[in-house]
Design a protein around this nucleic acid. Sequence first.
DNA 1: ACATTGACCTGAGAGC
DNA 2: TGCTCTCAGGTCAATG
Length: 262
Amino acid sequence: MPELPDVETFKRGFQATSLHRTISRVETLDESILQDITSVELDRQLAGREFEESRRHGKYLFGHVQGNGYVVFHFGMTGYLEAAEKNTEPPRHTRVLFHFEDGGSLAYISVRKFGYVSLTPTMEAFISEHGLGPDALAEDFDFTAFKSALDGKSSAIKSALMDQARIAGIGNDYSDEILFQAGVHPKRPADGLNEDQSHKLFSAMKQVLTAAIEAGADPSRMPDSFLLPHRKNGEPCPGCGGTVRAEKIAGRTAYYCPKCQS
DNA sequence: ACATTGACCTGAGAGC
DNA sequence: TGCTCTCAGGTCAATG
C-alpha cells in the first residue's frame, strides 16, 4: 500500500530520526529482502558512516550514505520504517536493522516481503535502470508533462495513472482517489480526455497527493470529501451519498462512485 | 509493440 | 471452535 504520500511520510520520519548518526553495523534478519547486494557487503559499505540526507522518487526512498551512494528502500505493500532510541527488541517482521553507535536503531519492517532494500551508486542510475517516469509531485512535472505521460495510451486511465514508467508514485488507492476527485470514470481511455478533464485530473493529482501528505498518509485524518476512508463496497459516497462500487480493472480492485464519475 | 495477467509473499477475515 | 479459502497489492516476468 505504501504509495507516494506514505513514502513521503516515511522520508520525514527518516530525516527526523536517522540522519547524522554513525552506523555501527547493519544486521540483515532476512537475506531474501536484499536486492543486488549481500548482507555482508551491505554492512561493510555502511559501517562507520552516516546517512547525510534522504530523497524520494515515486514510491522509493533513498538514504544518502556519506561518501558512498544510496541505500534504496522499497516498501512493497506492507513495508515501513521504525526508529528506536534504545537497544530494544526489534519489531516483528523486521528484515533489516541499522544499528547506530549511540545505541539507537532504524528497522525496515515488511510483513509480506514484497519490498526490498538495495544499494545504488546514484539515484539517476537506479531510476533509469528501473524505468521510472517522473515523480508525480516533482515541480517540473507540469500539465504539459502530465499530458504527454498519458499520451498514446488507449486503455483505462486508472492503469495509466498507476504505470510507474509514465508517472512514478501513484498506486491503487490514490489512483481511485484522484479519479474520484476529478469526477473521471476509472475505465475511461487515458488518451480520450478533453482539455478540461485533463486539467481537472492533473490538479486533482497534485491536490490529493499534497493533502494526503499533510494528513501523514493516514486516511482518518484526510478531508471529509475524500473517498479513501470509504474505500469499501457499499459505503456511502462522500460526494453524493450514493453507493461506492468495487470493480476489477486491469487486475486491481477499483472503487468509485458511478454517479459522480462519468 | 503493446496490454493484460499471474507469481511472488504472509496474515486477516470470511465461510463452512 | 478450528480449519480452509480468498483476498490484499507493487513489481516483474510471462502470456495474449
